[in-house]
Nucleic acid binder design. Sequence first.
DNA 1: AATGAATCAGTCAGCGCTGTCAAGACTGCG
DNA 2: CGCAGTCTTGACAGCGCTGACTGATTCATT
Lengths: 330, 330
Amino acid sequence: MEDVARLAGVSLKSVSRVVNREPHVSDTLRAKVEAAIAALAFVPDAAARSLAGSRTFIVGLLFDNPSPNYTIKIQSGVYRACVEQQYHLRIDNIASDLPRAEVEAQLDAIVRNSRCDGFILTPPLTDNVQVLAFLERRGVRYARIAPNSELGRSPCVAIDDAAAGALVARHLWALGHRRLGVVTGPPLHRAGDRRRTGFLAAIRQFDPDLVVAEADGLFSFESGIAAGMDLLARDPRPTAIFATNDDSAAGVMVACARAGLRVPHDISLCGFDDSWVAKSVWPYLTTIYQPIEEMGYAAASLLLDRGETGDRQVMLDFHLVERDSLAPPP
Amino acid sequence: MEDVARLAGVSLKSVSRVVNREPHVSDTLRAKVEAAIAALAFVPDAAARSLAGSRTFIVGLLFDNPSPNYTIKIQSGVYRACVEQQYHLRIDNIASDLPRAEVEAQLDAIVRNSRCDGFILTPPLTDNVQVLAFLERRGVRYARIAPNSELGRSPCVAIDDAAAGALVARHLWALGHRRLGVVTGPPLHRAGDRRRTGFLAAIRQFDPDLVVAEADGLFSFESGIAAGMDLLARDPRPTAIFATNDDSAAGVMVACARAGLRVPHDISLCGFDDSWVAKSVWPYLTTIYQPIEEMGYAAASLLLDRGETGDRQVMLDFHLVERDSLAPPP
DNA sequence: AATGAATCAGTCAGCGCTGTCAAGACTGCG
DNA sequence: CGCAGTCTTGACAGCGCTGACTGATTCATT
């Protein structure tokens, strides 16, 4: 930094001001310093910055029970935002299904050791009030991804799961399907439940008396097979099934194959997530795309643009990805 | 640290010595300091340590073109090793298929910005001589995962891909299969090729004249479908197919279904990796398990146990995971 | 025109550790 | 017993940056 200051003919502090985008810096000075920084390819030392200042330039990303596809996308979005803002990314797993004291012990270790400037919480941590309360008590900033309660409590990023469920309902209805099935998610997964209720509410608007068949799923491939077999055994058999995530949709597809039903000729199938599975099954799965990578990016931006104005709640767009698993009823 | 020193009745430097496991510290002093550290739950400040010392306590994990399943497992292994040794983990992606100068620019930015103590290289970076040369020129330590050339050049971790291919060959042969097919990997993926050649060599030992049908794959689901259709159209049709990774095996499974062939009744199928897809298809895929998470852990340990004796090359075990896609020929 | 407020730039201590150097306490050997 | 060599501990500077403060201008207001 000394070299930069000398080359620009200014004091160390002025270089620091420019690097940190502090106010009250004249344009000419800023230009001189920036030129010197570029000329010397100066990169500020993160360790020294965090030692001297109050920030650590680290953001923590907290997962529980990570599903590879989801995790990796969130991570890459958060990473992208961190690089832009010259932050480092630190990833931690915590098991939130333990007794209260143990969860707190894990959090305590992470908060103490990592000294992050803030954390990003992913489901199911994002709705864990115990975790939220702990972080607040410690005065640690955090942003949440896909929360389903107390949205005002912190910056958060989400999609409108209910609207997405309704979109699937409208699409299936428009194709002519009147015998419908839904594969639900795990009981505690609020987002999954909102997809389901959004779907059901939309159908009810079309025909208040129509009964939609439901089967329990756990968002896993195996549970999808079971739920699919369950649904296919109903009388009348559904002509279209909405599985509230892609993994269980892949399972339903297996159940169809075992029942001798061809997708989409004999039965239509819609997933949710547009995860990597959607293109690892045949036919390719029609599904709802949710911008997971973008959610990671938005959450990190929310966390890092501290002073900035703007929404503390960001709603991102979703859309239907039409592939090959939907057709009119036979 | 001052508090610890006061409580233990020693100097700051002595606490530092204990924390860093430096030699020439008496047992009594070490015990006193450790007790004080435990009593105060002291955690050394990474920023200060790296500012004062020569280490940064960060290890960098370099990916190119990440496949989620592989990436996440490597990452979790590396992460585990880092936590144990009080290191931080930093993850970076680099695109290695660009012109030489651009690859160097990316590397330069990463090395300069991150100031990592060392890097871990994953395929295909692990065999990129340009990357290796750059790191060496900069005097940066690195460990490689699953390299296929110049093993002695750096610490590395791998499995014996050829032996794994041979294991599949023996297994298929023992089941009675004599008409065999192989789906290859991308041309530049050396490990994939070693699986193939190991397989072919083992078959040649059983019957030097037997011709194994081969079809090009690219380790992707789609390429697996095409390769499967290709193989199934051969005359005579193979009774067993070895796909050199799980994704392409899942594709072959689709090709079988479209050809009206049931796995494993009509045709047997073996994958490689034991990735997450292996349990997202029906029937579940018999495949070779390779300890990917362990490889990450071992690579990080190799990198961090600097002075330690012991092998600079670690060969990890693999094994066949018998699930439901193999049976005797019809 | 006089006063206070805001803007701009600089000085300097010190963040929490580790590297260097030095001093004291031992050991073994002639 | 004395001396060189080794082991064990401590004092202190300084890593590269930022926060708090100070001083010099310029601007807005009465």
